[in-house]
Design a binder for these strands. Sequence first.
RNA 1: GUGGGUGUAGCUCAGCUGGUUAGAGCACCUGGUUGUGGCCCAGGAGGCCGUGGGUUCAAGUCCCAUCACUCACCCCA
Length: 419
Amino acid sequence: MTKEFIRSIKGTQDILPDQSQRWQALETTIRNTMDTYGYGEIRTPAFERTELFASVGEGTDIVSKEMYSWTDQGGENLTLKPELTAPVVRSFIQNNLGGQSPMNKLYYIDALFRRERPQKGRYRQFHQFGIEAFGSEHPEMDAEVIALALAVFNDIGLEGLTLKLNSIGSSECRSNYRNTLRDFLKPHINDLSETSQNRFENNPLRILDTKAPHEIEILKNAPNISDSWTAEDKAHFEEVCFLLDTLGIQYSLASNLVRGLDYYTRTTFEITSTALGAQDAICGGGRYDGLVETLGGKPTPGIGFAAGMERILLALGDDDSSGNPTQVYIVGLGDGARPSVAKLAEDLRQNNIRTDFDPLRRSIKAQMREANKSGATIAVIIGDKELESGQAEIKDLKTGDQEPVKIKALVDHINSLTL
RNA sequence: GUGGGUGUAGCUCAGCUGGUUAGAGCACCUGGUUGUGGCCCAGGAGGCCGUGGGUUCAAGUCCCAUCACUCACCCCA
């Protein structure tokens, strides 16, 4: 590698043609499924005002230390979007979508930016697809959102998934629970890690998320958030569960499942894959009934999820689904044949036949090798002899059979073949 | 931000306790017919052994630093 070469940014990656096939397949599946479930695509800008994200997740790592933020030449504080719910909600409010229809179902496929230390399944520029459904506070909406996520994964062929489900209740439920949890943890506070001690004040629910064994041990006897649910929270969650049962969707209850962003209410869920490393969450989401209002819109319930595309492709593993191979390879010989080769290639391509030829002016042997490698079913050979006789040679690359065909009739002839 | 691992040809890697022209497989190129692929055979191109310093008669091999990649912590999709 040349010393002075300018490399890509850490944690970003180029998607080369062999990989882009897989991305396209995933994107197509997503779009088809979204269409079936009645979701329309929304595309928001790559960057937003920094305050938009700050107002949504002050206490989170994503917002507090992972954002790519800068001040532009006009003095505006801007940020490359690190998550998509806030921008979509912003757009929902700004375009008054709620005023046009009581129900809005949106999906996106987009690139996000977080300055984390890269590792397997975690990159600084990464991609998510996701949905946001605005308008319904009812459990059937929750169930649909979860079913939709699973439908996409099923269609793409992902296996080994686990759906974890929880309800973190309404805001009054959580403030009650915060207190009972603090009361419970107080005697153990000196046994907690430094970060957990910090969270004890700002966001004690996050302590539930810990991976430290001794903290998990302490938390075993912690009060469950379900004890703090209001009657409505409980009824909502039970109905969500009942609906999932009805839809034949399996899930496990995870009372310690707290999502990363601050704005969630009631239903939260996460889908993990056994095919990944430490970063095994493929999809995370939940309800955020207060967010639209927080960001300055009319009170509107909402629920959504986001799924990591890199992680999905990682979990799918390497299947060598090579794209569509060349169908016809034209072998040209000599200066005189060049215009005929170019014209034939163009005519065939205009007929939607995947055609290629050798622009390197190599020997016939090299060109035949190339034809073979390209996966073409037939090779067309045009040289001085053929120009003179007006007949090109068509070689079937499977059988090796070769026959002359009038150059003028080539396009029609090839069209009549099954390639 | 904190740890661990790894950096040798385009790719995957070998190179024993430091020793002379740095290897293999795959890929690539050329040839084996004067205008015909796959298989086979022969040949070829391609590496300042990540970078910088040090130890030594001698360093891809040892030491230090640095950078990059990677996995994990953390965090999360």
